[in-house]
Design a binder for these strands. Structure first.
Lengths: 380, 380
DNA sequence: CCTATAAATTCACTCAGTGAATAAATTGGA
DNA sequence: TCCAATTTATTCACTGAGTGAATTTATAGG
């Protein structure tokens, strides 16, 4: 028999991840399980210290036995997240609800030989600084910018890191003496949104990661959708404009070359604009610089067009953007949103949430930690 | 508790739909259930007459007790399929394996008032002609060209039929005195491929329906993916060329206007080509007619570009085309295939099957019947 | 005719769940 | 003050779907 994917226990945990606080009867309802089973399960989880009982807020208001609210004891379990990409390696420690308890950059040059030791040193430091008890740490999640076999914890290929078949989960697990799980960075963000963030209420949503390049991932029917070969969400190389600039993949007008952070910074440089960050480019545009305006507007239009296609094909309840480039609120987002709204049929417009959000440096390792949280919680 | 979606019984049926013939021990393996449970389940199903035992083909070959092969008794259950679109209403009766036992066109003008009676008359005729025992018919599946709430069996909207909130399942159920289920036509084709056809071996695939317009649907993680709002697969109105011809949806260069059967026939007429069918257009192209060549090549390129995007976003194991327009093997398919192969990254090229197939008149009602088959079988 | 072998079944058992009855904890009114 | 009403939570006997280990069945081969 397949793992019973929806046991009463996991259903209860899922409901509490989604809702913060629920009484036992509400839990019974949401988890689709009899009150008797809820009693059984919650007793067990209370003993383990995973649940917190908060006596009655409705005391003195209604008749009857007062409800006892249950919530997850966030500090019960902590998780390590390690994000690895060509720019840097970061580490974070979070609690069960995704609160970041500690965070630091591990290293800039992710040399594979030295990586496990560097991560171990960083883990020890961060543990000390944050005051988290080592015994509370349940595992480590690793996000890698590349193609990852999540089942095996092996990075199959990463162009940026020049990795091929690297058993990264195994290496980190050995270094930290903790269970480890690895996944691709976009999948990690999707998982992070689902259990820590803005995706908690949705069964079907897509995330779009705006960084040096553009990635996406999908939650479908309440689970992460990896595709046939683990490559779902490869939005960066969809062709948006067949006559567009050449991409390193050999084709033209890929989304990455039109709206990716790296391409955009290159284009700005080529246009003679001197910028340190995307914020600078947005500022220039705001002050009326025609070149900056054109760059951002075109990039937003390209992204929006790709997202419109995604919406038509997959009909997500929401598209959650994670802005790692620091566009913040500005022309780029406006242009993107406009292109989406112009590009989708009215019925999608009404039913699809388009949600932008500022990424922070800690976004990636925090998402990585969610992989560990997920795997720990479903195995409880 | 949610319906146990993967009980031993449904797992056994699913395995036998996929594999034709399996021994009990093979079944135990594929269904992921102990041999003991297989004995239990198969006893029950044999009694019901759903299973057929075929004694040993390996007699006299190996030592040991000979294996007994089990297969589904195709004639145990029959299903009615009704396909409804703006062109016509068709009806088919199939067996458990999708074999078409009878088929006819119900009517050309799908007047809603008269439809249930017309379907009933057609059902009775087809039943008589095919010699199927009424008692074997387990239900009716209905596919509608429009937006369908499959849960409720209500067509929410169909532009072509001018329907709004039509409880079509209920009406047909009453007319035929059979359980009825309805779904959108592309979803029906996906279901048909999954349980009767080319999709049986895949857990993740997309179908693309080439008709007057273009539709698609996705099977993901082993189940039909409907999207947040039941609108997933709306490929016809993704923008392929922002500078393309106007679409009735108000935008430009939608896939439907570039590669849909209706648009293509209009374009051929406008170009002064006199064709009765797509086969004629393909013939003209084969004989070197430049206009026909351009039409088919451009249309194929547009379709291929859209499919390339689908492959990048969703990474299906296969894309199954259903050609209801009668392009058959020709320039259109070649152009489509080329555009897909040029438009996807090499790793997708290697792992994604692109499979064309000729649609037949009976394709639609046969697919519709699969909806009934699915719903009947999972409820057993 | 006995032994080896492979397939299938039997059977005692477990485990996660349920429904109905009961207990617990409170408010409000006689 | 105390009991009825009300709402929440727990108890408990029971069930259904599964399992693993032992056993039975049916064959080939020496």
């Amino acid at each position: 028999m397949k793992v019973s994917f929806r046991s009463a226990k996991t259903a209860v945990i899922a409901a509490l991840l989604e809702n913060d606080q629920l009484s036992r009867l509400e839990l019974s309802d949401r988890a689709g399980v009899s009150p008797a089973a809820i009693t059984e399960v919650t007793q067990h989880l209370l003993q383990q210290g995973l649940l917190l009982e908060t006596p009655a807020m409705n005391a003195g208001k209604r008749r009857g036995r007062p409800t006892v609210q249950l919530s997850l004891q966030a500090s019960h379990s902590c998780f390590v997240g390690v994000s690895i990409n060509e720019e840097k390696v970061q580490l974070a420690i979070t609690d069960l609800r995704g609160e970041v308890l500690g965070h630091e950059e591990v290293t800039e040059h992710s040399d594979l030989q030295e990586l496990p030791a560097a991560v171990r040193a960083s883990f020890t430091r961060t543990l000390r600084k944050s005051g988290v008890a080592r015994a509370r740490v349940r595992g480590v999640g690793i996000s890698v910018a590349g193609i990852v076999d999540a089942e095996e914890g092996i990075c199959r290929y990463s162009a940026g890191l020049d990795w091929r078949d690297v058993p990264i989960a195994e290496k980190i697990a050995a270094a930290l003496k903790l269970p480890a799980w690895a996944d691709n960075d976009a999948n990690a963000i999707a998982m992070g949104e689902k259990i820590f963030g803005r995706g908690r209420e949705y069964d079907n949503f897509s995330i779009v990661m705006l960084g040096r390049t553009i990635g996406s991932a999908h939650y479908m029917n309440g689970m992460l959708y990896r595709g046939h070969d683990g490559s779902a969400g490869e939005i960066g190389h969809i062709t948006v404009d067949p006559n567009g600039p050449p991409c390193r993949c050999g084709r033209n007008g890929c989304l990455d070359t039109l709206a990716g952070g790296y391409a955009l910074r290159q284009a700005a440089k080529k246009a003679g604009l001197s910028i340190q960050s995307m914020r600078d480019l947005e500022d220039l545009a705001m002050r009326g610089n025609a070149k900056a305006i054109k760059l951002l507007r075109d990039a937003g239009a390209a992204l929006g067009s790709a997202i419109a296609t995604l919406v038509h094909l997959n009909d997500p309840a929401a598209v959650l953007f994670t802005d790692l480039e620091g566009f913040e609120n500005g022309l780029f987002r406006t242009a993107t949103r406009q292109a989406i709204e112009n590009g989708i049929l009215p019925r999608f417009l009404a039913s699809t949430q388009i949600i932008f959000g500022d990424g922070e440096p800690v976004s990636l390792p925090r998402s990585a930690a969610s992989i560990a949280a997920f795997n720990y919680l479903i195995a409880l």
